[in-house]
């Protein structure tokens, strides 16, 4: 593995670029979170506020850059990349789908049920 060192040239330029990108995305998130533009809060897309979708998409965008650039996933072999990324994404999506559906169902039961839980 000692031979590997010869192949690595410095990537500092790219690292700083990614840092600036992550910072800008975070600043945008914070600004949106503070002013909460009315049209984004009022518009609902797939049973969630558009603003929340924007937050989630920006978060995934940040997560992509952290994994690909900082954790150097882009340089790994296809096999390792898929073993890590596909497994996690599939299981996480599955879990989120199940739990959120169930949570929404429980909410409906609380709301429509003839027993009050706020006594």
């Amino acid at each position: 593995m000692a031979h590997d060192t010869a192949h690595h040239e410095s990537n500092t330029g790219r690292i700083w670029k990614v840092f600036i990108l992550l910072s800008v995305v975070t600043i945008v998130e914070v600004i949106l979170g503070i002013i909460k533009p009315a049209f984004l809060v009022e518009t609902t897309v797939i049973s969630m506020k558009l603003l929340n979708w924007i937050f989630i998409i920006l978060t995934l965008y940040k997560a992509y850059y952290i994994t690909w650039s900082f954790m150097h996933m882009e340089g790994e072999t296809k096999g390792l990349r898929r073993a890590v990324v596909w497994t996690s994404i599939f299981l996480i999506c599955y879990l989120i789908f199940i739990l959120l559906t169930e949570g929404d169902y429980v909410y409906e039961v609380f709301k429509a049920g003839h027993k009050s839980w706020d006594f």
Binding site: I92, L95, L99, G103, Y107
Partner: peptide, 18 residues
Amino acid sequence: LTFSGFLAAYGFSRFKFI
């Protein structure tokens, strides 16, 4: 996966008391 378990459980409770 552990962290997503926690965060998904948080999402569950939040949807329950949306």
